[in-house]
Amino acid sequence: MTNTAGASGSGSGASSSPSSASLARIEPYLLLAKSARGAAAARIIHEATAAPGCYVFAELADTPAVNDLSADTATHGKTLALLELFMYGTLADYQARPDAYPPLSPAHLAKLRQLTLVTLASQSRMLSYRHLVDALQLSGDEAGSSSSTPNATLAPTMVRKLEDAIIEAMYSGLVAGKLDQKKLRFHVDSVMGRDVAGQEELKGMEEQLREWYVVLYNDSTMLVL
């Protein structure tokens, strides 16, 4: 598996490289992978994808230990799918094909929710609370079941739950922005880059940077005027 750590998505949110702290968190698993093979390598993937602070996995995916698992997809196919899910995927990807992955622990689901927020923030500078509640699968009976439900119908407890999730992601260095509690939306200033799947995503990153440059240029021009 050959991958690159970088920005994910092709929207207008500004993406930055993964933090040094995030890259450092994967180091122990890279060291373990040097001598691991088979089931031991698969176990490293399970542990790394659930570990706090580990958000980029390209280096782990490129280790001989992980590459060797591809020779036995009957045994390790779901584990490899798990790794790719945490490299590029979202909660929606998991929900679409839950049987394609091994069972996810609460820690896995919590992190996948954070990574889903990162992907959404890389695609748009303005995210409505309603959209985020649905995409992060925070909704329950109190929040309504339809994504077309207006923001005004979100229960206060659901608003707090969403804002807590966003604030946690901000403290973790995954996103930066402002919570608009009046209009119930999240304004994205910057977002951590996720692993990049291939050339198509690299092209998307290039377009994303162009769009962001235009936004910054227009903002600076308005300030001068």
Rank of each mutant, 00 (worst) to 15 (best):
K182E: 08
T49G: 09
A152C: 04
T73G: 00
S139Q: 13
L83N: 04
M1S: 10
M205N: 15
R210W: 08
G9F: 00
P98F: 06
P18H: 03
M1I: 02
M192L: 13
G198D: 14
T4F: 11
V118W: 06
K178A: 13
M170G: 07
I45A: 08
L138I: 11
R160L: 06
Y88T: 07
S124H: 02
D189K: 07
S15K: 10
G38H: 02
M192A: 13
L174R: 06
F186G: 09
Y213I: 02
T49F: 02
E84R: 14
S19L: 09
V118D: 09
V159F: 01
L31R: 09
L127D: 11
H187G: 09
V214N: 10
H76Y: 15
Q123I: 01
K78S: 13
L32W: 02
K178Y: 07
L184H: 07
K203T: 06
G173R: 10
R160C: 03
S70F: 03
R43T: 09
H76F: 15
Q208S: 15
A155I: 04
E168M: 01
A51I: 08
K203S: 09
L174T: 03
S70M: 07
E59G: 11
L23S: 13
A58G: 04
A21R: 12
A197S: 13
A58W: 01
M87R: 14
S10W: 06
V56M: 00
H46I: 02
A107L: 06
T157W: 01
S10M: 04
